[in-house]
Amino acid sequence: MIIDILSGLLLACGGLLGVIGGIGIHRFPDFYSRLHAVGTTDTLCAILIILGLILQTGLTLDAFKLLLILFFLFFTSPVASHALANAAMHGGLKPWLSNAEIKK
């Protein structure tokens, strides 16, 4: 019962973070801030959802497979955001600044 509530809470938090990332990628003005919104929430969203699922499966082979997926996402997701931002910077895309900073 407690485990069910805990896993539901983790799943809900993970889903909420995913939605926040989606709103961020939709509403932010330029490439870097959009990447920031989705790149930071994405990893924690995946971690919370997979932890919630592990609480549901218990100590089985499925939990181990979920842990492997978690390990994989933990490494690939930040590296993918890093590679995107790096490629944009390398390609010469300037970050969007406010008018006051441009005038200086």
């Binding site: 994989f72 490494f75 690939t76 590296v79 890093h82 590679a83 790096n86 390398h90």
Partner: peptide, 17 residues
Amino acid sequence: THNLIPRVVSKLLIPLI
């Protein structure tokens, strides 16, 4: 040096893939 991080992580991940 600008793709150091993808290099290191892909060295880790390619055998797993």
